[in-house]
Nucleic acid binder design. Structure first.
Lengths: 111, 111
DNA sequence: ACCTAGGTACGATCGATTTCGTACCCGAGT
DNA sequence: ACTCGGGTACGAAATCGATCGTACCTAGGT
């Protein structure tokens, strides 16, 4: 069965304050840098990020990212998918994803 | 008498997490959007931003911005100057100031 | 029908952050 | 020497945010 799409605000309604607050947290930013660096933009599983936090907290973080308009969540009932809203984010905040992608380089290959 | 320059971390030591946490606050971001939009990059007075908060809280916010490496504070003893570290920020986080500048348009001329 | 894995709802806790009150410092001008 | 405006130091209060315990839901497989 196809999952239900959970989408945040429309492109025009994205607010920089909400986005920056979402990116201020280390865990959420690590998710976003990974998504920004992967240009295939495929659907990702929620636990493919290996976050060192409980699942309740993960629920919280992914919801924050969705409400900020950065990702789309696909609800399958028993599992969940994540997808980066690349074109939306890039059109509203050009250059933001590039900043996150650059940060991902630092994570994998420290300077 | 020339004031004492209060500078934050070196360019290479700037961390995206610290910067984003600094920009997460509305008051600090309003200061930064104004600085980013003013390309003369002149020295600004601390109370030229008309922040609706007490001066103790302003001290706090400007210190956060300085420690994040976004601004330089010039201490004259009885007053203080603020200067954007444009080249440093732009070289470490290219595109970030453009995002803030775009936000400043929204503040002055709402979409 | 049951169990299981993944996710959510609700609430509590703990820590960080914002804010301000009080007191004090500094330099400029009178 | 005094005052005044602008800024800081310190600490307390209040607020916000991240985290998790408990309980519950959902789809898939046995």
């Amino acid at each position: 069965m196809a999952g239900t799409n959970l989408v945040g605000p429309e492109v025009d309604a994205l607010e920089l304050g909400v986005v920056l607050r979402a990116l201020a947290d280390e865990h959420r930013r690590s998710v976003m840098t990974e998504l920004a660096a992967d240009h295939t933009d495929g659907e990702r599983g929620c636990n493919s990020f290996a976050l060192p936090i409980s699942k309740q907290t993960q629920t919280h973080h992914f919801r924050v990212l969705r409400r900020a308009g950065l990702i789309t969540e696909i609800d399958y009932g028993n599992r969940k998918g994540i997808r980066l809203r690349r074109t939306d984010v890039e059109s509203r905040f050009p250059g933001l994803l590039a900043l996150l992608e650059a940060e991902h380089q630092d994570d994998t290959a420290p300077r």
